[in-house]
Amino acid sequence: MAAFAFYLFSGLLLTSGLMVITAKNPVHSVLWLILAFFNAAGLFILLGAEFLAMLLVIVYVGAVAVLFLFVVMMLDIDFKALKRGTMQNLPLGLAVSGVILAELLLIGTGWQPGQGVIVHEALAGPPVGMSNTQWIGSQLYTRYVFVFSMAGLLLLAAMIGAIVLTHRRRVGIKKQDIAVQNARTPAGTLGIGKAGLGQGVDL
């Protein structure tokens, strides 16, 4: 049963990964990417890491891919120009991917883990009576707290950068200030005047 599920998930993962790069329509590409994320979450569940699986779905499927889809859907893409670009850049793309493939092969065949890098001893798994999730939390916030904070700071810096790049102060627009609206009282806004016949009121 588990073997069947593994081949199902990994087969679908590879297929959808392939479809991401071969699909003609970019929106379809993103939808295939979502299927790939989803199958990766399935593989995590098979490994017994249900917390990671759920996080993968929440963060990547639920947030990141939605924003991807948002952007891609709004783009007005000229497919012919895109195709021409592909043929022009093909040699460069092939060269870069060739280098990456070579590096991956070198790492996969030549590198022994644990040499030159000091790694922590492998953790054995959650202690009895503790769920997977509690255990991850207790390790992440005690033992790996500095690494965890560094990752958080990295994301914060990225966020600040994005805001600084896109922020602009627009002038000449009317903006609703709800606090000011709520603070209005009849005394400050209402006046009762007498309108004399044929004279109107003085405002």
């Binding site: 929106v27 939808l31 979502i34 249900e50 917390f51 759920m54 996080l55 779905v57 929440i58 499927v61 639920g62 947030a63 939605v66 889809l69 948002f70 859907m73 769920s131 997977n132 999730t133």
Partner: peptide
């Protein structure tokens, strides 16, 4: 499930796809 609450959150965060896909 041990992660029932996260499961609910994950599924409800995927619910947006039905809407966004139908709109597009």
């Amino acid at each position: 499930l041990n992660v029932g609450l996260l499961y609910i959150f994950a599924v409800s965060s995927m619910g947006v796809y039905g809407i966004i896909m139908s709109g597009w």
